[in-house]
Nucleic acid binder design. Structure first.
Length: 164
DNA sequence: TCCGTATTGAACT
DNA sequence: AGTTCAATACGGA
């Protein structure tokens, strides 16, 4: 076998997300891109472990999309540097309905000047939503940016009761 | 080594 | 009040 990455789709009310799993766990989660792929079809010999993770991922994803805190998360295996992992780790500690600025995150990882680097790490985040990068706002409560489009970020925040 | 970035805060008009 | 500028930290070519 070639260390294959398994891609499975998650159908939500907001579109079809694509989850990518490695033998280690969930490695990446993509927003709906509109391109219809063969999807989970052709799943001949997908180990039960993938389906098990997928079930958890699907539940967690839908919970966050509904503005609620997921009960359980699948094993996350993000690909990135130590710095990025630190940033993502801080993000995961942000409670639902609460936002944090890039500067706050920078301080949390002990690099108060690395605000822009934090932004870069957010953009490099392979697992949006489950790693709540959408709860990161600019210092002046501005939206900043978002991988899947600012429309998503705005919508997700609104569902958590965060208003501007 | 240089450039780009999902920032920030201060100066300027 | 809106806009421009320089600074800072990290990743990628």
């Amino acid at each position: 076998m070639k260390n294959q990455i398994v891609e499975l789709s998650i159908a939500t009310t907001d579109g079809k997300f694509t989850a990518k799993y490695t033998p280690e766990g969930l490695a990446e989660l993509d927003f709906p891109v509109g391109r219809t792929k063969g999807a989970g079809a052709g799943s001949n010999e997908i180990p039960a472990q993938f389906h098990r993770w997928h079930r958890i991922t699907e539940s967690a994803l839908k919970s966050v999309l509904a503005g609620q805190k997921p009960k359980q998360l699948p094993p996350l295996v993000p690909t990135g540097t130590e710095f990025q992992k630190s940033v993502w780790n801080v993000m995961r500690k942000i409670p639902a309905g609460r936002t944090k600025s890039y500067g706050e995150v920078a301080q949390a990882i002990g690099r108060p000047r690395a605000v822009r680097a934090v932004g870069g790490a957010c953009g490099a985040n392979p697992i949006p939503i489950l790693v709540p990068c959408h709860r990161i706002l600019a210092a002046n409560k501005k939206l900043g940016g978002f991988s899947g489009g600012l429309d998503w970020k705005r919508k997700l925040l609104a569902r958590e009761g965060i208003v501007f």
